[in-house]
Design a protein around this nucleic acid. Structure first.
Length: 901
RNA sequence: GCCGUCUUAGCUCAGUGGUAGAGCACUCGCUUCACACGCGAUAGGUCACAAGUUCAAAUCUUGUAGACGGCACCA
């Protein structure tokens, strides 16, 4: 079989996904072992409005590596996909579309029609990301795909709401909330971000004290809110103002009188020591208002414009226009003391960046006291979830829980789960999962449903169990039984609070189970400029472009090569490295197939019945070495994956395959392989076959493409759980590695051979000896080493490009020789007429200098009595050995140098 | 303001008590019959800075500086 000269990712990517999916390989049901342990992951559901970005690609890679690895090990494996309805995002898209296509506002078509349009939008555009996941090679079970607004999942939402309401964990109340005037909805604290404005202003307003000609000065960053002031507060122990407490103020521009009150919240030292109190527009003022029973005067509407309560002159003005006008009018009245420049951090809407207005509003909340305890107890008693990396995420998570405030769950949107609460004409509320039930509760009265919907994160909080069929009406299903708790959650730092914590709480509350044991927090993939990728910075890297340019597999394994949790600046050359690696794997296999086609026998790479002793007698060193290396690599890869150290696994595989297998093993065995030596070709096919399996979780397409072409592969190599399935590397048994096949003595011998070859190559390169010139290599070593070298003579000659090897106890060479020393041997290459004595002296001196530097450091340490006394004996011994060896090598090199003189 | 993370070769990053590593880039040499997306050989680092603990610190402690992140406050 002849393969193309270079790997073409496109054709491999097109060849396999469809078959995998259609053959049911992604489904847990493919596993025929009744005793198989389950392994399950639920995907963090991407927004239906989204398209794949590098963060998804990273997280999906991690999840797919774990899923494919566990599946190959024979676990009954499920990775469940799905999408999130993304309330505000979808609502905004539909509003935009409506405006563009029909020049209409949502209110023009009404709620029912609007929701229809939203579903249509979702049907048309919501599949972008799921299609892209297919390209990624994600081995998710599409038959179990879920959407947060599926009927079952919506029923679960209503049931959870009702239960929490009945238990008093959900309540409706008037509170200061974060209001986005653009989206015209309330936001939870977590959806509000902060932006620093350097050009902020602090305005000092003078308030006249009634019946006097005195004023009291207050400072504010939001002057327009003075229209809603209902008091001025001072600290009761502030000598400056003590006497004013109880007096009234003529509040300018309003014609109202408001009291001066004393409250401990006010710090006398800060600002003017007097604070304007606007209970309807500031959380702290609200608290003060509660304590002093102040009126709550709302002066803005839901669009951030001043309302009638602000006075006729201001009604209808945007908050920022009103701000300017208030300041101007104070100035005209001579009541503007000053305006200072002031750096201020403003709350902004996470999505639209509009400045959020704190506003008094009636909303639904989840009381978090008991919820917090659920999560804290799990962490304290069981250490669940276990974060990777553990530091600092566990600490941050716990600290956040300890300071948790109630969660605002209502949203003034149409797209989402409408709140299952109904009101009668008297304003009584009836919470029920259906209108019928609510009516029954209301004794048949005419009811109107609450027009708000729930925070998107409310339904995602149920994702770990609602996806397995839990609706509240149904609380046991075979999937719940089989797959909950899930094994691991893979996600980013940004949604630890928004999502991870809430899933922990709600899953425990409603199923009694843990949502997941482990959480892997991935790092952030930054743009080439080192900043987070964003549209506004235009520094985004499109994963699809990378797939097209370097291949899906190269992109995947590069992403997996990043240390777990670490941020990384994107650089194409990283992916290029693994594109090259793909090609290396392709070509090694190509070479193998050129010489081993048609053979259908299987020679194990270490798991065969041959005993260790048999092998050592019959099998050449290089073969025993590569078997040892392969098995060690397999064991270490499994260990690394168990610890979620994906980058370690990648590095092990990369260096095993490229350095050990391609650069040394194939090169050493090349002649035998091209000559068609049966043992050699069988061995190399077996090694490649095992390597492909080890690489498969990272590089699914390439490995399947090549594995299918190998002469020895069949579904007999499947893990026993899949023995009946059609042949695929996806279901092949993942190599565990055989510890008994690891042979340190063999590895040491091989390293000695490698060292000799490298020294000869060094001489050739440094002396500028053309490869056309074949020379003789003389080696002196002890008896055992002589045996090893003699056994590998042909290989050494080939790789050192030498003509003849002379192996003896002592070197017997002419003066015109280049010399070198290894740990186990001295070697020399006679170069009569070719040697540049000056260069050779330099070369030897460089090496002597290097070794001497090391020896000096070692001897310094060894002459330190403290070290010899206190360091572990084996450490001291190790250093002594090394020092002795260095002495020997330096001596040899110095002799060589002298003989040149 | 509080908490945290990071700072290692020109670049992107591993390593986390016992002789500083990789890939890319650089230098030199190779049309060696799998691969130039390749092969071989070099060169390149007071591991941000300072103090401490230790026989021994890139690694542990404290402090400083810079970058980033989270939380709080913001009259």
């Amino acid at each position: 079989m002849e393969l193309a000269k270079a790997y073409d990712p496109k054709s491999a990517e097109e060849n396999h996904y469809k078959r995998w999916e259609e053959s049911g390989f992604f489904r847990p049901e493919i596993n025929q072992d009744p005793n198989a342990t389950k392994y399950s992951i639920v995907i963090p559901p991407p927004n239906v409005t989204g398209s794949l970005h590098m963060g998804h690609a990273l997280q999906h890679t991690i999840m797919d590596v774990l899923t494919r690895w566990k599946r190959m090990q024979g676990y009954k494996t499920l990775w469940l996909p799905g999408t999130d309805h993304a309330g505000i995002s979808v609502q905004r898209k539909v509003v935009e579309q409506l405006k563009k296509d029909e020049h209409k506002k949502p209110t023009d078509i009404g709620r029912e029609e609007f929701i229809k349009r939203a579903w249509a939008w979702k049907e048309q555009y919501g599949n972008t990301i799921t299609e892209q996941m297919r390209r990624e090679g994600a081995s998710v079970d599409w038959t179990r795909q879920r959407f947060t607004m599926d009927e079952d999942l919506s029923l679960a939402v209503r049931n959870v709401f009702c239960t929490l309401y009945d238990e008093g964990w959900i309540y409706r109340g008037l509170r200061i909330v974060n209001w986005c005037p653009k989206d015209k909805t309330v936001l939870s604290d977590l959806e509000v971000k902060e932006e620093t404005k350097k050009d902020g202003k602090l305005t000092y307003l003078k308030y006249p004290i009634a019946g006097t000609d005195q004023t009291i000065t207050v400072a504010t960053t939001r002057p327009e809110t003075m229209l809603g002031d209902t008091a001025v507060a001072v600290n009761g122990s502030d000598e400056r103002y003590k006497h004013l407490v109880g007096k009234m103020i003529d509040l300018p521009l309003t014609g109202r009188q408001i009291p001066i009150i004393a409250d401990e919240y006010v710090e006398a030292e800060f600002g003017t020591g007097a604070v304007k109190v606007t209970p309807a527009h500031d959380p702290n003022d609200y608290q003060i208002g509660q304590r002093h029973d102040l009126p709550q005067l709302l002066v803005m509407n839901d669009a951030g414009e001043m309302n009638a309560a602000a006075g006729a002159e201001f009604e209808g003005l945007d908050r920022f226009v009103a701000r300017v006008k208030v300041v101007e009018m104070f100035d005209e009245l001579g009541l503007l003391e000053k305006v200072d420049d002031y750096e201020i951090t403003l709350p902004v809407c996470e999505r639209c960046k509009t400045i959020v207005e704190p506003i008094l509003s009636e909303q639904w909340f989840v009381k978090m006291d008991e919820m917090r305890d659920i999560a804290l107890d799990l962490m304290k008693s069981e250490g669940v979830p276990h974060f990777s990396p553990q530091i600092p995420h566990e600490k941050v998570y716990t600290a956040w829980l300890e300071n948790l405030k109630d969660w605002t769950i209502s949203r003034q949107l149409w797209w989402g789960h409408q709140i299952p609460a109904w009101y009668d004409d008297d304003g009584n509320v009836y919470v029920a999962k259906t209108e019928e039930e609510a009516k029954t509760k209301a004794g048949g009265r005419e009811l109107k449903q609450d027009s708000d919907v729930l925070d998107t994160w409310f339904s995602s909080g149920l994702w770990a169990f609602s996806t397995f069929g839990w609706t509240g009406d149904t609380t046991t299903t075979s999937d719940l039984d089989a797959f909950l708790p899930t094994d691991v959650l893979v996600t980013g730092r940004d949604i630890i609070f928004l999502w991870v914590s809430r899933m922990i709480m709600l899953t425990k509350k409603f199923t009694g189970q843990k949502a997941f044991e482990d959480v892997i927090i991935t790092g952030t993939v930054l743009g080439k400029d080192g900043k987070p990728m964003s549209k506004s910075r235009n520094n985004g890297v499109d994963p699809i472009e990378m797939f097209d340019k370097f291949g899906v597999d190269a992109t995947r394994i590069y992403l997996a090569s990043i240390a777990t949790g670490a941020d990384i600046k994107w650089n194409d050359s990283g992916v290029e490295t693994y594109r090259n690696f793909s090609n290396k794997i392709w070509n090694a296999t190509r070479f193998c197939l050129m010489n081993a086609d048609g053979e259908r026998t299987l020679l194990s790479a270490g798991n065969d019945k041959e005993t260790h002793a048999d092998r050592s007698v019959r099998t050449p060193l290089a073969d025993r070495w590569i078997i040892s290396r392969l098995n060690k690599t397999a064991i270490d890869v499994n260990k690394a994956l168990t610890k979620y150290e994906f980058h370690t696994a990648v590095s092990l595989l990369y260096h095993f395959f490229w350095d050990d297998f391609c650069d040394w093993y194939i090169e050493l065995k090349k002649d035998e392989i091209t000559a068609g030596d049966k043992n050699s070709t069988e061995r190399i096919v077996a090694i490649i076959e095992q390597s492909l399996r080890l690489l498969h979780p990272f590089m699914p397409y390439l490995t399947e493409e090549l594995w299918q072409k190998l002469p020895i592969t069949s579904n007999k190599l499947h893990n026993p759980a899949y023995s009946n399935a059609d042949m695929t590397i996806m279901l092949a048994d993942f190599p565990k590695g055989d510890a008994s096949a690891i042979d340190e003595a063999v590895e040491n011998e091989m390293n000695a051979v490698i060292e000799v070859i490298k020294k000869v190559r060094n001489i050739r390169a440094e002396m500028n000896i053309s490869t056309a010139i074949k020379f003789t290599v003389h080696i002196a070593a002890d008896e055992a080493m002589q045996q090893v070298l003699k056994a590998n003579e042909a290989q050494i000659l080939k790789l050192a490009k030498a003509e003849k090897l002379v192996i003896a106890a002592e070197l017997d060479v002419p003066r015109a020789s280049a010399k070198a020393v290894t740990s186990d041997a001295r070697l020399a290459v006679p170069l009569e007429g070719l040697i540049d004595f000056e260069k050779e002296r330099e070369r030897l001196q460089t090496q002597i200098a290097k070794l001497t530097e090391e020896k000096t450091r070692l001897d310094g340490q060894l002459s330190n009595a403290n070290f010899v006394e206190r360091a572990p004996a084996e450490k001291v011994e190790e250093l002594r050995e090394r020092s002795k060896e260095l002495t020997h090598q330096i001596q040899t090199l110095e002799n060589n140098l002298e003989s040149l003189a």
